[in-house]
C-alpha cells in the first residue's frame, strides 16, 4: 500500500474505531440537535435516518437531495458519518445540510452510536428497516 493510502486508511480506521465506542444514550441527547430538520422514521427538511447505515447518500426515494449529495458517492457507515458530521460542508460542498458540524470526536461517536442503534430499531423504524 502506498504511504499516502496507508495514512488515509489509518485515519479512516481511527475515526471508525472512535465512533464505534460511542455511547448511544448520550447520543440520543445529542440527536436532539438534529430535530429541526431530521427524524428517524420520516423525511423532513432532511431525509429520514431509519436504515441509514449501509445506505448510499442520496438514495431515499422521493427525497429532494442536493446534486452535491447525490453525486458524493458516499455510503453511510461509522467512518463516513464521522467524517461528514465533523464538517458537512467540507466533506460535501454544496450540501443543503448547512450546519457547521459536530467538532467534538466524543460527541460524534455518541451520536453515531445512537444512529446505528435507532436506525435498526424495529420500535423506531418498523420491521422494514
Amino acid at each position: 500500500m502506498a504511504p499516502a493510502a496507508l495514512v488515509a486508511a489509518l485515519v479512516l480506521a481511527a475515526g471508525a474505531a472512535t465512533a464505534a465506542q460511542g455511547d448511544a444514550a448520550r447520543g440520543e441527547q445529542i440527536y436532539a440537535r438534529c430535530a429541526a430538520c431530521h427524524a428517524l422514521a420520516y423525511d423532513r427538511v432532511g431525509p429520514r435516518h431509519c436504515g441509514l447505515i449501509g445506505r448510499r447518500a442520496g438514495a431515499v426515494a422521493g427525497f429532494p437531495y442536493s446534486p452535491a449529495m447525490k453525486a458524493s458517492g458516499i455510503v453511510w457507515n461509522v467512518g463516513t458519518l464521522d467524517r461528514f458530521l465533523a464538517a458537512p460542508l467540507r466533506v460535501v460542498p454544496g450540501t443543503t445540510m448547512t450546519y457547521a458540524g459536530v467538532p467534538e470526536a466524543r460527541e460524534r461517536a455518541d451520536l453515531i452510536a445512537y444512529l446505528v442503534r435507532a436506525g435498526r430499531s424495529p420500535a423506531e423504524c418498523g420491521s422494514g428497516q
Partner: peptide, 17 residues
C-alpha cells in the same frame, strides 16, 4: 419543544457559515 430545541441548534450551526 423538540422542534424548537432543534431549531436553536440548527441556527447555532448555521451562524458561523
Amino acid at each position: 419543544a423538540k422542534l424548537e430545541q432543534g431549531a436553536v441548534s440548527a441556527y447555532l450551526g448555521a451562524v458561523p457559515l
